[in-house]
């Protein structure tokens, strides 16, 4: 299989058996938004707006660079946005405007 075929046939999350360094035995208490993000994932799954499997697929489809560089819940929230666009639930513009509105709440 050529390297570019590998790019397509090995998902970025499929890492069982690959070379990796020592385990950093770290943990952190979730930030409030991370916990809300987790709760959002569960609620979206309850309603099958985004099932757990769709969420996994959404994270995988971010590609290797984003999977490697975004934090765990950053990947989730971006995946949710993409899936909601794909399903026609929201548009990219809906999200951009709402994010602007939220940012404006913090400007005096």
């Amino acid at each position: 299989m050529t390297p570019t075929e590998q790019l397509v046939t090995r998902l970025p999350n499929d890492i069982g058996g690959l070379e990796a360094g020592r385990i950093q035995q770290t943990d952190h208490p979730l930030e409030p938004w991370e916990k809300r993000c987790h709760a959002l994932a569960d609620v979206l799954d309850y309603h099958k707006i985004i099932s757990t499997e769709e969420k996994r697929r959404g994270v995988e489809s971010l590609g290797g660079k984003m999977v490697g560089e975004l934090t765990y819940y950053e990947r989730w929230i971006v995946a949710f946005a993409n899936i909601l666009f794909q399903k026609g639930v929201l548009t990219p513009d809906d999200l951009a405007k709402k994010m602007e509105e939220i940012a404006a709440r913090w400007k005096g």
Binding site: W33, L40, H47, Y73, E74, V89, M99, I102
Partner: peptide
């Protein structure tokens, strides 16, 4: 990303999906 979380949650609530 926190802003994105808040925005998605608020949009879904406004649409009465959750």
């Amino acid at each position: 990303y926190e802003t994105m979380e808040t925005a998605l949650r608020e949009l879904l609530v406004e649409k009465k999906l959750i």
